[in-house]
Design a protein around this nucleic acid. Structure first.
Ligand SMILES: [Mn+2]
Ligand SMILES: [Mn+2]
Ligand SMILES: [Zn+2]
Ligand SMILES: [Zn+2]
Lengths: 142, 142
DNA sequence: ACTGATCTTGCAACTCAGTTGCATATTCTG
DNA sequence: CAGAATATGCAACTGAGTTGCAAGATCAGT
């Protein structure tokens, strides 16, 4: 019940519409971050307008339900922020794993950012948030 | 002599042309990563073709002289990889600091990626390289 | 349930970074 | 001073994402 799309939308103050439910189901069902294109393919038959999909994803992101990750080839991937939908996007240190072979991007939980931040602070930067991006081979591809 | 643009081009097996020398001079003179647009502005008067500039930057990057960093608004910034031009792009752990106020991206030296990598390996990922992206306020803006 | 303010959807036209093809000019090795 | 290999310039193109606007759906208050 907690993870029902309609409840989640309500919880994130997003109006409950068929498009949003479908898109959210796709995102909930994916282990990796998905592009606009990926989502469109997984919703073949539903024939959702491309602009509507962009706006849906932006709404999700603005409300903190999803976050977006830039790819190497200058577009965006979207993912549910937290598997348990517990922590909001803003106060969560974040890591992404980019597979060199299949190009999939995985969201990883990471706790140990402290040392990195401390050394930056020493250099005169004030760190408010951070993202770690690891490249290599995912469990499927190695 | 070591940091003369012409020598650097030769060292990176890039043909010595006026365009390349100008672009390299701009990159060497900047503390922050620069966009295609930034470089064009700094080369007003030289009237370099936009396609040529893209191709120049790509050549630099392919040869490991520069690297490119994706921005939040889906375009690229380019920077000389290493201040001392000592280490090639591929075996260098990398950090970027994105200023929330001025949007500048700084390249930072970072040594402490080990703990992060170790925890990823435990989860079944094979880490080959990493980028850390820190957000906050740069020394100029705070 | 009905109304109405508010938000969402769909379509067309647009923007803008980056690419591709091709003809001409330049580099640099022998 | 060749001549092959590479760089440059221009025009046309690509494709992700945006904007404006009119029509449709949602949902809180009655
Ligand atoms: Mn993520
Ligand atoms: Mn850098
Ligand atoms: Zn993979
Ligand atoms: Zn700043």
């Amino acid at each position: 019940m907690k993870r029902d799309p309609r409840n989640i939308l309500q919880q994130y103050k997003l109006k409950n519409t068929p498009v949003r439910v479908s898109v959210l189901e796709v995102l909930l069902g994916s282990r990796v971050a998905l592009s606009h294109n990926d989502i469109t393919e997984r919703l073949k038959g539903k024939d959702i307008d491309k602009v509507t999909l962009y706006r849906t994803l932006n709404s999700f992101t603005e409300k903190g339900l999803t976050h977006k990750v830039p790819t190497e080839d200058r577009n965006w991937l979207y993912a549910i922020f937290d598997e348990d939908l517990l922590r909001p996007a803003t106060d969560h240190y974040h890591a992404h794993f980019v597979c060199n072979k299949c190009d999939k991007i995985y969201c990883l939980p990471v706790e140990e950012h402290q040392s990195m931040q401390n050394s930056s602070i020493k250099m005169g930067f004030k760190v408010l948030s951070s993202e770690v991006r690891l490249h290599g081979l995912c469990p499927v591809c190695q």
